[in-house]
Amino acid sequence: MDKTAADIDRSLMLAIATGRQHALAYLVERHGKGLTAFVRRYLGGSREDAEDIVQEVFWTVWRKAAHFDPDKAQVTTWLYRIAANRCIDVGRRNALLRFVGLDAMPADPTLDEPDAEARISGRSELALARKGILGLPQRQRMALLLRAVADLDIAEIAEVMGATGGSVEQLLVRARRTLREHMEKASGGPRV
């Protein structure tokens, strides 16, 4: 992560720790979109469901800002770790609900058809990619989203996932290969 962006986040965290709401609002503005994308593509639910989880993440940030140690972690890493843990909890709950026959978080309705943006620009590969991402094994999906959406490096992804750098590299290699194969199969030839 870039140094200056990290500095801005760190100063925002200090302000949040002293109870300044406008600092939290700016942190949401900076990271809300990325976190929502991460949560939504990891869990595969609707945007509203993802936003609910992101709200919980920022509520946790507000409560625990004073405990955040900037020497131990980057703000981005911390934010995505909270979101990842919450996603894992929600994923387990959804799996349990599905197991007992109750419909958990409904699947993203936009997965079955290309969204408006994709239709307009004729880029249906976005819809295919979304399906492919959701089809990846959970840990591969998480590693790839943390890399692509959060722009975390290998060490940071390992920190968020509680894994080693080597295993994260393996997860990324497998995830990219699987997604590439999915795209090729769906489109009838090499695309990415």
């Binding site: 609002a25 949401v28 503005e29 809300g32 979109k33 990325g34 929502t36 994308a37 991460f38 939504r40 593509r41 945007r47 936003e51 992101v54 943006e117 590969e125 976005l126 819809a127 990619a129 979304r130 991402i133 790839l144 989203l145 890399r147 692509a148 959406v149 990219r176 997604l179 590439r180 795209m183 990415v192």
Partner: peptide, 21 residues
């Protein structure tokens, strides 16, 4: 990696950030 950029583009929605704030 082109897969990463595709994933990012596919993951991010064009939504109103102020609404989330």
């Amino acid at each position: 990696d082109p897969v990463d950029s595709l994933v990012r583009e596919a993951a991010i929605d064009n939504v109103d950030d102020s609404l989330l704030v």
